[in-house]
Every structure is written in C-alpha cells, then in structure tokens.
Amino acid sequence: MPARPRAALLGPAEVRALAERLGTRPTKQLGQNFVHDANTVRRIVRAAGVGPGDVVLEVGPGLGSLTLALLEAARSVVAVEVDPVLAAALPGTVAERAPALAGHLRVVAADALRVRAEDVAPDGAPPPTALVANLPYNVAVPVLLTLLERLPSLRTVLVMVQAEVAERLAAEPGSRTYGVPSVKAAWYGRVTRAGAVGRTVFWPVPRVESGLVRLERHDPPATSATREEVFAVVDAAFAQRRKTLRAALAGWAGSAEAAEAALRAAGVDPAARGEALGVAELARVAAARPAPAPPPARA
C-alpha cells in the first residue's frame, strides 16, 4: 500500500496565528492546552500503533495538531470537538495543510460525554477502532470510561492525560495510587504507561506534567454480575479506603454481616481493603451479593 502524503504540521507560530485568525484562545473551562510540537504528535501516533486499517476517534482536536499527524497514518479520523468555533474551523485547516487527506476527516461537533455510537459511525460508516487523544484534563477519566462503554468497537486507546491521572489509571492492586479509575479501566482492558510529555510542548503551558496511557481492550472478567453492579462494588470499596471491605461494603450489601457473607462467598478476606483487590475479585464480590430480603407480608 502506498504511503500516505505527509501533512504540514502545526508549530508554535502556526498555532498562535491560527488561533488569532479564528479569534479564539484556549480556555480553562474546556481544559484546552494545544500541542504545538510536531515531534510530540508524531510520537503519540507511533505510540498508538495506528495503521491504514484504523478508524481513529480523536476527542478535543482543538486546532488540529494531532489530527494532521493521525491522518498521515490512519484510514480516517473522526474528531469530536465541543468548541463550535474549533469544530467549524478544523476541516479548513486540514484542507489547507493536508489537501490530499481532507476527505479522510469527519468532524462531530459534540460533547464527548454525550456522544453516541451512531454519532461517530452514522449510516453504516465503519466504527472507530482506536481512540487517540489529548484529553481535556478536567474530564479525562469520565470521557475515557464513557467512550469505552459506548463504543465496543474501540480495540486500542492512547490518550494524553495529567501525569498523576496516568499513574492512577495504570496502577496495580496494592499500589498507593490504585483506586476507582484503575479498577474501572481494567474492566475494559490492560492499561500501561506509554511515556511522559513535557509541559513546553503546549500552549498555554500547563502547570502540571502530562503522561501517555495505553489501553489494549480485552473481554471483561467472567461474572454473572453486570458492569453496573461491579462498578457499584468498586465505588463502595474505595469510598473510605481505611475501612475493611466488611465495613466499606456494609451499605452496599445491607449490613456488615451480609457484606462479610458475600466476601467469603467470593473467596475474599473480609478484613482486606479495596486497594488489595483486582477487578476480577471485585466482580466475584458483586456476583455474590445477597438477594434483598422480601418485604414483610401484610396482615
């Protein structure tokens, strides 16, 4: 297969000039920090491992720095952008800087937390196979988990998030950073760190360091419990980290005694704490939840 044409990527001067032309500036409310370094965006594309067979979903493309690099490698890109000015401008930027690739881009002007499968793959269009994005840091985890839930076609993920969030997402049981995001991400796939990103490649320069996280999707743990039921256990188990699971799950189970019974049925020590358990063990606990007692019969 012939190589895709190269795009004229955006540098610092081009990013600022484009923003000025559009009359826009990055806003803290939307978590906007635009990448302006060509080496960084090409590094992200390499780390994502996308190829000519992939339909890439990009969330928050902004001015198009990463979009242009993704179009060089992927079959097509579906870009979801909540900012209406940026969403309207992106096709023109691609047509100007990568005219041969412009037909491989589709922009969806929407909030990623509300986007549905039919929004990103309408009328029989191929669904996205990979998520690659510089996620807005203020909603990174909710966006990631929402898209994994709604788009089962996603097989791989490579996202840039705040370094602390990257650490939490990839944390293993027993780690001090292991918690709700770690377990819920693990429900969908194997999560690993994929490198650090310096602050100077962004405009404006953020106050925090950034990191890349990769997820390779796999089937969820075998369990009779639903995802919602498992996630309810996860939320309860980590709501008060210092408590034993017997105490932490008392409200979820109906009593401390019922929680202990469910834990023992799942083969889990009731004196353990949530951070000691992996997603498969928590799924077993969810499946062992006792049925609620029937209401008393009326006289």
Score class of each variant (00 low, 15 high):
S65Q: 10
A140W: 10
L70E: 07
P142Y: 12
V141C: 04
R155Y: 04
L70D: 09
G124F: 09
P128Q: 11
L68S: 10
L71S: 03
A110N: 05
P152V: 09
R106L: 07
V120W: 09
T146P: 06
A73C: 08
V161C: 05
N134M: 13
V82I: 15
T146L: 03
L158S: 05
L63C: 02
L154Y: 13
A87T: 06
T67W: 13
A133V: 12
A95Q: 10
E164V: 11
P122H: 04
S76Y: 00
V159A: 05
V82N: 00
P152F: 14
A89Y: 06
L71R: 04
A112I: 05
D119T: 01
A130M: 09
V115A: 11
H104Q: 02
V78Y: 01
V80W: 15
T156G: 11
V120G: 08
T129F: 09
L105P: 01
N138I: 03
T67R: 04
R106A: 10
R106N: 00
R114T: 08
V161P: 05
A121W: 12
L68D: 02
Q162W: 06
P84M: 14
T93Y: 00
P122K: 12
D119G: 03
T156N: 04
A100Q: 13
R97A: 02
E81N: 07
Y137K: 12
L105W: 00
M160E: 07
G124N: 04
N134H: 06
A133I: 09
V107P: 00
D83S: 08
E72C: 11
L68H: 08
R106G: 01
A125F: 06
L135R: 06
A140G: 13
P91C: 04
V139M: 11
P128C: 09
E96M: 05
D83V: 07
A110Q: 14
P91I: 07
D119S: 06
A125R: 13
L105N: 07
P127Y: 11
L86K: 09
A73V: 10
A163R: 15
A130H: 14
A130T: 12
A87Q: 01
P142S: 09
T156D: 14
A89V: 04
T156A: 14
T67S: 15
T146D: 13
A73F: 06
R114N: 01
P84E: 08
E149I: 02
T67E: 11
N134Q: 13
N138K: 10
T146I: 08
